Amino acid sequence: MTGLRERKKANTRRALIDVALRLFEEQGFAATTVQQIADEVVVSRKTFNRYFATKEDVVLAHEEQVMDDWLALLDARPDHESALTALHRAARDYFTDPALDEAELQRRFRVQALMQDNPALMGENMRRFTLREERLARHLADRSSIGVGLEARVLASVAFAAMRVALQEWAAGSYGDIPVCLDLLDRTFTKLAGGLDLPPRTDPPRKKE
């Protein structure tokens, strides 16, 4: 019963995201209301708010999920990889994950395109970047045993910039296909590899979470 309930919740959440993205694209982000999204999915406003606090959260919650997935993939990378190499390969792992279906990849593309066209939404996403960068810095520091200091914070910030630029280029070009996205990721991370990397840890292996 619990499994069925969780699947229903996941399906409702996915439906809210898909309908919201469609309405944002059809009539604009500013013109779309939470009530319209709820009505299209045939749920109440109260039900909508169980999943998302605002319509901005419909878009940005997707970004938070991507962040969670990226960190999980980063932590799964081998200990011998340097921080930047692990970041790069974790990003590629995300976009080549067999479990990531075509619909989810298209959501990724549509979210990027939507933020590209809405400065206010992009601004709110950037505001939340600080918290994401701190999370990433902690994971990078753990990989290299250096503490969450200047080096880890700089690399976290620069890695986010690399990801953001690559995905913005992907969205702005209306590409939508994964090989182009991977090429953009490769090119941006390669640009960073010259002098911003961190060595892998040399003490006993870190514990896997």
Rank of each mutant, 00 (worst) to 15 (best):
A10F: 06
R22H: 14
R14I: 03
F48G: 06
D39F: 00
S44G: 15
N49A: 11
G28R: 03
L21S: 04
Q35C: 00
E26W: 00
V41I: 10
R13C: 09
A20H: 01
V43W: 03
Q36S: 14
T32A: 08
N49L: 13
A30F: 01
V19I: 13
A30G: 02
T47P: 00
V42G: 10
T32G: 06
A53S: 15
Y51C: 07
V34D: 02
L23Y: 08
Q27F: 02
S44F: 04
A20T: 01
V42R: 15
T33Q: 10
L23S: 08
Q35S: 15
V42E: 15
A53F: 07
I37W: 08
L16S: 04
N49W: 09
F48C: 04
N49Q: 13
R50T: 07
I17Y: 00
D18I: 00
F48I: 04
V19T: 15
V42S: 15
I17R: 14
S44I: 09
N11Y: 02
K46C: 02
A53L: 14
A30E: 15
E26D: 15
Q35W: 04
L23F: 05
V42Y: 06
Q27W: 06
R13N: 09
V43F: 04
G28C: 04
R45F: 04
K46M: 11
L16A: 05
V34A: 12
E40N: 11
S44P: 06
L16V: 05
T12L: 14
R14Y: 05
R13H: 12
L23V: 07
V43M: 12
V43P: 08
Y51E: 07
S44M: 11
A30V: 09
F24W: 01
I37H: 05
D18W: 00
F24T: 04
N49T: 07
N11M: 12
T33C: 08
D18P: 01
L21E: 09
D18Q: 12
L16D: 03
A15R: 14
T12D: 04
R50W: 03
D39T: 12
L16T: 03
T47V: 13
A31R: 14
N49Y: 15
R22Y: 07
A30M: 02
T12V: 13
K46R: 13
T47R: 12
Q35L: 12
S44Q: 10
T47S: 10
